[in-house]
């Protein structure tokens, strides 16, 4: 897939704008921080890497993206809407009664969502199951499952069960992506519950480890391409990111894990992102 860096960056800015729009202004809370930290990764996957068909979300030849950190699903909703999996009109209905856009991913409500996630620590296991199904169906050479996880989520024991399972089954059509933004709901990961060091842990669990700046599009692309060449073992991309990236007042602010913007902040965020989008 030949897509320019510029197009991916534009998509990332659009995703961030959609995220702000979905969460809304004063009186509404939403997972702004962790959604923006993975926005560049989500943009790259959907525009430059994953095979898919918005007109046929269940197309058997597609690659799959699972948000194991399910609370960041709004980044995925934004990408799906931008690609035409559903109308952008739905975005403002996020978390409203009857909306197709639930607070956490729902396979039976949202086109393009691959599984219900949200209880943290389970996505990688689900992704393993999908990757094994691709193997059974003879698609492991041509299709991949991508699974975005959070660094706070690394405290969940099941992550490491899944890490062992992927190595045990030599699953090489799975790519884990660790959105390492350093902040969990109540503070810095290393202060609240230190799950470091990540590269050493994953390597010792038998994974091919790639470390990148998770906001640098060429690095994201190169890492995803490198993962395609790894055989006989799973790959994890450890992406160093900034929570709230791209929203000036929210960057590295714990309160925006699931916080509310003031009316002024909401307007500021939209203005900043409109300015960013005007550059393209």
């Amino acid at each position: 897939m030949k897509v320019s860096q510029r197009e991916i960056e534009k998509m990332a800015a659009q995703i961030r704008r959609d995220i702000v729009l979905m969460i809304g202004g004063e009186g509404h809370v939403g997972h702004l921080g962790g959604s923006c930290s993975c926005a560049d990764i989500v943009a790259t996957l959907y525009t430059a890497k994953m095979k898919g068909n918005p007109a046929d979300p269940k197309w058997p030849g597609r690659d799959k993206l699972l948000m194991s950190k399910g609370h960041a699903c709004i980044a995925q909703y934004a990408a799906l809407a931008e690609l035409g999996y559903f109308s952008k009109e739905h975005l403002v209905t996020l978390k409203s009664f009857g909306s197709m856009l639930q607070g956490h991913p729902d396979i039976n409500k949202t086109p393009g969502i691959e599984a219900n996630t949200g209880s943290l620590g389970q996505g990688l296991s689900i992704a393993n199951g999908m990757a094994l199904a691709m193997r059974l169906d003879g698609r492991a050479e041509t299709n991949k499952v991508y699974c975005i996880m959070g660094d706070g989520e690394m405290a969940e024991g099941q992550i490491w069960e899944a890490a062992m399972a992927a190595k045990n089954f030599k699953i090489d059509n799975i790519v884990g992506i660790l959105d390492l933004n350093g902040l969990q709901a109540t503070g810095p990961v290393e202060d609240r519950f230190d799950t470091n060091p990540m590269p050493e842990k994953w390597a010792s669990f038998g994974w091919h480890v790639i470390e990148i700046d998770g906001h640098d599009i060429p690095q994201i692309l190169a890492a995803l391409d490198e993962a395609d060449t790894v055989k006989g073992q799973p790959t994890i991309i450890i992406a160093h990111t900034v929570k709230g990236k791209g929203i000036s007042f929210a960057e590295n602010v714990v309160g925006f894990h699931n916080g509310a913007m003031t009316h002024e902040q909401y307007e500021t965020a939209l203005r900043e992102l409109d300015e960013r989008l005007a550059q393209f």
Partner: peptide, 28 residues
Amino acid sequence: PDRYFEMGIAEQDMLSTAAGLAVSGKIA
């Protein structure tokens, strides 16, 4: 043997992996 997955002593991982297989069209 190809359709059998020994998941080790890890029941939680077993169920979630089964979910991934099931959502891909398998009866797990």
